[in-house]
Every structure is written in C-alpha cells, then in structure tokens.
C-alpha cells in the first residue's frame, strides 16, 4: 500500500518536474531579470481581488495606458465586477464616442459608448498604432497578465524597471528605453508612469510603485475575471472529492476485507 502511494507521489513529482523545466526555460530564453515576486491580494487558493485596488488600476489604465493600448476583450458591462456601479460605468462609457449604425442615408454615425460596448481602442487599426509609435505596436492588454511569464509580478516589475540611462557598454536602438525586466532589455515604450501622474479618488498616494501595482492587479482581473468564482468553486469541489474519496476508500477496504 505505502509503496503504491510512494510511486504515485513519484509520478506526480515527475509531472511537476516536467512543467517546471518548461517554465524555467522560457524565462532563460530572454536575457531579462526574472520579476521579483510581489504580495498580491489574489495570490493563493483563497486569494480575492481588492475592489478598491482594481478601481484604482482601471483609473491608471484609462488615464495612462489607454492612450496607446487597447483592451479589446473587456466590455464596459464587465466593469460591474470591479465594484463600479452601473450608473458610474454608464457615465464613464458616455465619455467615449463609438461608431453607431449607419443613418437613413447610409452615412456613418457616432454615438456615446454604452454598457454593451468594448472598451474603445486608441487606434483604428494596427497600422495606425505602429505609425503613431515609431513602428512599435503597443500590445492589447486584455490578456497581458496571462501571456507573459510572471503575470502580475512581471507587469509591476516592467513598469517600475526603467533605468534613466542604459548601463555602460549597452548600445541602445533609436528611441528605445532600457528596462531591466524586458526581453533583451530594450523596450519601445517610454516610462509610462510618473509620480502623482493620476489622482486617486480614495486618497491613496499615487507613487509610481503604487500605480504599477494597481494597474497590474487590474490587468490580472481583466485576464481572468473568473478567478474568484473559480477558486470558490474549486475549494467546494476539492472538499467534496476529499470526503467522497475517503468514503470510497472505506468501501474498498470493506469490499476487499474477505480477500485479505
């Protein structure tokens, strides 16, 4: 019996070893420093999003990042999840003009954005985005927390990882900025956050670190809005399965008792 379990444990360890080696290699591929792990309200099995932080993060996105970066997978109606009231979201949405239905003469129209609209993109298409950014394409941020190794840690590290001057011996490309955590250390994006660059409604001091932290949390929510529901359900499912499995073990022992 114990031997069997030891073997199951071994198999598990092997699987883990497999996947760890996978992750570590993708990190090793870039020359960048791995992002230092941060404390997040949403880490761990019981972690949840901090609604106030998400709202601060959305403010940073709206006032800073949204100038160049789209978030196409997020709709205004999703923002109810970060604790904004429907009226507050409607008011924010109404500030944006989006393409409406063609009018009676077939002419294109514009209307204020509503709850069922996506967050508006800053550029009409990728070409316009490149043209406005020196040839670089600002990536869509909806899934950035899932599509980068390190997730929220990486976003926070990147936003705070700029050096004013590249270290001696590093030749920078034209218009490029030195960033400790970016692959190959050269990033087209200029340092986006400034001390008190936004004004938080809840009175939190808007340091660069705080803004980076908040917007990283917001992007984590945007990448996996289902996370809280997933963890809540997961805990119930696992508790149920553990009890069920214990009972099944007792049944198995009982059934086999006449053979042993």
């Amino acid at each position: 019996m114990t031997r069997t379990f030891k073997r199951i444990a071994l198999a598990t360890a092997l699987l883990a070893a497999f996947s760890v080696s996978d992750v570590s290699t993708s990190r090793a591929a870039s020359k960048a420093t791995p992002p230092p792990p941060q404390d997040w309200s949403f880490s761990g099995v019981f972690g949840t999003f901090d609604r106030a932080q998400l709202q601060r993060g959305y403010l940073v996105y709206r006032e800073v990042c949204a100038a160049c970066h789209s978030m196409k997978q997020v709709y205004f109606r999703h923002l109810v999840d970060i604790g904004l009231s429907e009226n507050a979201i409607k008011a924010i949405a109404a500030e944006f003009e989006v393409a409406g239905e063609p009018d009676e003469d077939g002419e294109p129209t514009e209307r204020p954005a509503q709850l069922f609209d996506r967050l508006p993109s800053p550029y009409a298409n990728d070409n316009e985005a490149r043209s406005a950014n020196n040839g670089a394409l600002p990536p869509d941020l909806s899934l950035i927390a899932k599509s980068r190794v390190g997730g929220s840690d990486y976003i926070h590290a990147l936003l705070t990882g700029y050096l004013e001057k590249a270290p001696a011996g590093v030749t920078m490309g034209e218009g490029m900025n030195y960033n400790t955590y970016f692959a190959a250390n050269q990033i087209a994006m200029a340092p986006p956050l400034a001390e008190d660059g936004v004004e938080y409604e809840d009175g939190t001091k808007a340091s660069v670190d705080q803004q980076a932290r908040d917007v990283a949390a917001f992007m984590t929510w945007a990448a996996e809005p289902e996370m809280e529901e997933r963890k809540r359900m997961g805990i119930k499912v696992l508790l149920f399965l553990i009890i069920l499995t214990a009972m099944l073990y007792a049944v198995k022992r009982r059934v086999w008792s006449d053979l042993h």
Partner: peptide
C-alpha cells in the same frame, strides 16, 4: 470499488 477509489484520488 478499487477503481472508484482510484478515480477519486485522480479527480
């Protein structure tokens, strides 16, 4: 019975 228990562990 044995498979059911194993299935529980696996799930």
């Amino acid at each position: 019975a044995k498979d059911a228990f194993g299935l529980g562990v696996f799930l």
